[in-house]
Design a protein around this nucleic acid. Structure first.
Lengths: 66, 66
DNA sequence: CAATAAAGTAAAGTATATTTGTCTTTAAGA
DNA sequence: TCTTAAAGACAAATATACTTTACTTTATTG
């Protein structure tokens, strides 16, 4: 599972902490998702998709091993 | 969290078991998601989105309490 | 009515997401 | 160089997704 959160944050110029606050999770959760340590729930990916005004399918993409 | 899985299954005329096999989970997992007992992982919602050729955002929508 | 396919649900166990706390590293500015 | 903001990461605890097994219900069809 790949994602473009880091790039989207850069576009909007917001920190991991700010994104975390916007979607209601901890900063470590955002960091862990960005670095591929785990995959978010659909609830969380929809919230992230809201913040970035981009579809879940554009932000998150499956890889072979998923 | 609402979803349109039941409707999409009806459109494609496939059973819970068939969808479960297509995405690699148990039938009970599909049933539980359809009946709102829990929310799928992003991995699973992307796979479901693949089967239905519809975006995750169209299939799953947040509600006030999410 | 009997048989069968599909759906609904529940309990117990396992896997994984998320939190909280903490420590380290990196980069930028004073 | 010192300070600070931001990021990367880890461990322990908790919450939640998912599996397996199993039982019930609801059509539908012979």
């Amino acid at each position: 599972m790949k994602n473009t959160i880091k790039v989207e944050r850069a576009k909007q110029n917001i920190t991991q902490q700010e994104l975390a606050d916007l979607v209601g999770v901890s900063r470590q959760t955002i960091n862990s998702i960005e670095s591929g340590r785990y995959v978010p729930s659909t609830t969380l990916s929809l919230k992230i998709s809201d913040v970035f005004k981009t579809s879940v399918n554009e932000i998150f993409t499956l890889e072979n091993e998923d």
